[in-house]
Amino acid sequence: TEEYEYTDEQQAREAAREWREKGYTVTIEEHNGRWRVKTG
């Protein structure tokens, strides 16, 4: 599992979409105004 943090929701969603296209399972969670994208 890798985790990436973004301050911008749009960036987080874009990144998540790219990971999904590569076949990863992706979770996005908002935490204190930051967006965490977890792949695994």
Rank of each mutant, 00 (worst) to 15 (best):
1 T>F: 14
2 E>F: 15
2 E>P: 09
2 E>W: 15
2 E>D: 13
3 E>N: 08
3 E>T: 14
3 E>Q: 10
3 E>R: 07
4 Y>M: 09
4 Y>W: 13
4 Y>E: 08
4 Y>N: 06
5 E>A: 06
5 E>F: 14
5 E>Q: 06
5 E>D: 09
5 E>K: 04
6 Y>R: 00
6 Y>W: 05
7 T>M: 13
7 T>V: 11
7 T>A: 14
7 T>E: 15
8 D>N: 12
8 D>V: 05
8 D>L: 05
8 D>S: 13
9 E>Y: 13
9 E>L: 12
9 E>K: 05
9 E>N: 03
10 Q>A: 13
10 Q>F: 12
10 Q>E: 12
10 Q>G: 10
10 Q>D: 12
10 Q>K: 12
10 Q>P: 05
10 Q>Y: 11
11 Q>W: 05
11 Q>M: 11
11 Q>P: 03
11 Q>V: 09
11 Q>H: 08
11 Q>L: 10
12 A>H: 00
12 A>P: 00
12 A>C: 04
12 A>F: 01
12 A>K: 00
12 A>I: 01
13 R>G: 04
13 R>H: 11
13 R>C: 05
13 R>K: 11
13 R>E: 10
13 R>F: 10
14 E>R: 09
14 E>C: 05
14 E>W: 06
14 E>D: 12
14 E>L: 09
14 E>V: 08
14 E>S: 08
15 A>H: 07
15 A>V: 09
15 A>T: 05
15 A>R: 06
16 A>G: 05
16 A>D: 01
16 A>H: 03
16 A>S: 04
17 R>M: 09
17 R>D: 09
18 E>I: 14
18 E>R: 13
18 E>S: 11
18 E>P: 04
18 E>M: 14
19 W>S: 02
19 W>K: 04
20 R>Y: 09
20 R>E: 14
20 R>V: 12
20 R>D: 04
20 R>L: 13
20 R>S: 10
20 R>I: 13
21 E>D: 12
21 E>Y: 06
21 E>W: 05
21 E>A: 11
21 E>L: 11
21 E>F: 06
21 E>R: 10
21 E>K: 11
21 E>Q: 10
21 E>M: 09
22 K>P: 00
22 K>C: 03
23 G>V: 01
23 G>I: 01
23 G>Q: 02
23 G>S: 02
23 G>M: 02
24 Y>S: 02
24 Y>H: 05
25 T>Y: 13
25 T>H: 13
26 V>C: 05
26 V>D: 00
26 V>F: 02
26 V>P: 03
26 V>E: 00
27 T>G: 03
27 T>R: 06
27 T>W: 13
28 I>R: 00
28 I>G: 00
28 I>D: 00
29 E>L: 09
29 E>M: 09
29 E>Y: 15
29 E>F: 13
29 E>I: 12
30 E>S: 08
30 E>T: 07
30 E>P: 07
30 E>F: 15
30 E>I: 09
30 E>H: 12
31 H>S: 10
31 H>F: 12
31 H>Y: 12
31 H>Q: 09
31 H>R: 10
31 H>K: 11
32 N>Y: 06
32 N>C: 04
32 N>K: 08
33 G>Y: 02
33 G>D: 04
33 G>F: 03
33 G>C: 04
33 G>I: 01
33 G>E: 03
34 R>I: 15
34 R>V: 15
35 W>I: 02
35 W>G: 00
35 W>S: 00
35 W>D: 00
35 W>Q: 00
36 R>G: 04
36 R>E: 05
36 R>K: 14
36 R>S: 11
36 R>H: 14
36 R>L: 15
36 R>W: 15
37 V>M: 04
37 V>T: 02
37 V>S: 00
37 V>Q: 00
37 V>G: 01
37 V>N: 01
38 K>V: 15
38 K>H: 10
38 K>Q: 09
38 K>R: 12
39 T>D: 03
39 T>W: 15
39 T>I: 15
39 T>P: 09
39 T>M: 14
39 T>N: 05
39 T>S: 06
39 T>L: 15
39 T>K: 14
40 G>D: 13
40 G>V: 15
40 G>P: 06
